[in-house]
Design a protein around this nucleic acid. Sequence first.
DNA 1: TTGAAAGCGCTAACAG
DNA 2: CTGTTAGCGCTTTCAA
Lengths: 367, 367
Amino acid sequence: MTDEPRRRPARSAPTIYDVARVAGVAPSTVSRTFSRPGRVNAETAERVREAAARLGYRTSPPARALSTGRSSMVALVIPDVTNPVYFDITRGAEDAAAEAGYTLLLADFRESGRLEREAIDRAVPAVEGLVLGGPRISDSALRMAAKQRPTVVLNRAVPDIPSVVIDNPRGMRRIAEHLGALGHATLTYLAGPEESWADGMRWRSLREAALELDLRVRRLGPYPPTLAGGLAAADDLRRNPTTAVVAYNDLMAIGLMHELQRLGVSVPREVSIVGFDNIFGSDFCTPPLTTVAAPLRKLGAAGVRRLIGQLGGGPVRTGRPEVLPVQLVVRGSTAQRSRNRSSPARGTTSVSGSAAHASGSTSAGSR
Amino acid sequence: MTDEPRRRPARSAPTIYDVARVAGVAPSTVSRTFSRPGRVNAETAERVREAAARLGYRTSPPARALSTGRSSMVALVIPDVTNPVYFDITRGAEDAAAEAGYTLLLADFRESGRLEREAIDRAVPAVEGLVLGGPRISDSALRMAAKQRPTVVLNRAVPDIPSVVIDNPRGMRRIAEHLGALGHATLTYLAGPEESWADGMRWRSLREAALELDLRVRRLGPYPPTLAGGLAAADDLRRNPTTAVVAYNDLMAIGLMHELQRLGVSVPREVSIVGFDNIFGSDFCTPPLTTVAAPLRKLGAAGVRRLIGQLGGGPVRTGRPEVLPVQLVVRGSTAQRSRNRSSPARGTTSVSGSAAHASGSTSAGSR
DNA sequence: TTGAAAGCGCTAACAG
DNA sequence: CTGTTAGCGCTTTCAA
């Protein structure tokens, strides 16, 4: 009949002291048994372990953290959990963290710099280090964070802070080569958000590659890096037609592709479209999207591994960023440039492309 | 020239004591200022806050957790971060947690029951409560977990454990009505994994709805709940043709749709296909998928809110699960049943459907 | 190899 | 309203 508001869970979990009592040893011995086995007699350890098992003892992370200063947690701070680009990054980070015995704290800041700063602030005291995947805040704000806790940045090169990026230049180079080989002489780049480091990088890389390959490039945008962004670009594009479009990312590419088709423009017959990232869905949109496969999972994993390496006293390689290789995936959204470049004869059903589907089907169901 | 291995971060963070000294008050006053403002003189509080700000004081979560038993963290345990169904659930959970001042611990168990149990075990001591989204473990294993920490289950009704589910029966009912209205007399259900509570629920609901509506139903499977699963189902389906297929989820529906089309079967002309969940991508596959929109974001949020409510001493409503409403989204993958039911005349270009596209375009770019 | 004792930073009771 | 005093559960010296 006790109806007092129980503040702590009814029967609080067994502690090191309970185990010690049952095993007939000192608490410190129990502690040692778990934190540094080898420093304790084998038989004693066995007794302790038994007692612990019988009582269902679990070491308390906060207590350990308080006493050692190590919480065994790292935070992953990303712009948007629902953005497919970050799915795989999250997964990779999770994998790497679990593998190293760390727990992952997830913070999502909804593309807002203010929220990002808040998220970092809240995470900092709770974790040993941070992985910032796609930060939207300034370099100096980043450095502030990095001063508080070991930090690794993804998708962006920041001087003085360890970072991991994908090989944007090579990706763009491959795209330019591919499009060039298909006979496209002018490439239109659909720009993503201006605060995005990757956008600047991709645009510059494309321009350079085009220069070397003797192609012309043009830039439209910026647009939001979403389906809607691509959709919005369709209009601008119709006013300034091209035969080849390189979008900042897959989301935009897919949005554009669908809007163009809705407007009666055939892809890839009239316009070839290339994306970037190889996100979920890029293989089953119609036509399947030619894109650059970024090793997103590896990116997340590399970030966390690097961070945990530092925590363990490893080197803090703050020089040039670690670069992960990319790969061009040719699917159905790109094709040989057609003769009649602008204002193409709509309704003409000269379906040339079997190639359009040949490669697309292979990846279907790969997930 | 000190090269001793620094164990703690060089200059350890300021504590409550530092603030107390600077502000000229007792440590407990500092504590009170932050944990229960109002119980402290306004001016004193101001002095404390100033001192804290000047020193850059941050309260230490582990210390607080140790002393209060409350870590302000909840865990979200899901089968697969890279499964689109869980993106939105995760986002919703994140939102709700942040809103309540809680931090979200993310654990992903890669569809493995063993890993799920491990993930739970690791999370339990660190958090105040658990949200299990789509558990694969047995009811009894679930109850074990729930005994250790307040637990809320998503996507599954478990007796004695608070749970939140979506309205599967209504969803299936809507699908049956829709398909029935289009003239389909027999519906084929593509089953998902047998361990999935939702699969059983959906199949039963479809059967009941069909019964009431005087339609016939048939069940094929089980298949993996993935693109590949749907792809695999295509073969079986060709051996036993129907005009209408209801898949366990969108992923399977999309996989099936694409494989069917690759095999030369026209969707929706020859076969109508319906999915479930309304995941990212279901609006831009071809044709856009008719599906049941599950309020995934709300589901995640509801789970966390409910959990946090309990933590705060709220009621533990363990009776019947909280049910979230669903909505049928009609897009291009379903159409009027064509006259020539089986072995349809391929190559015939009697495109009937303008309806097939009318609704599909509206949702394009909605993300 | 083990035990005893002193904290980690914070909160919560109890006096004043 | 504020100061004092015990701990929370664990790790870590320091002796034994």
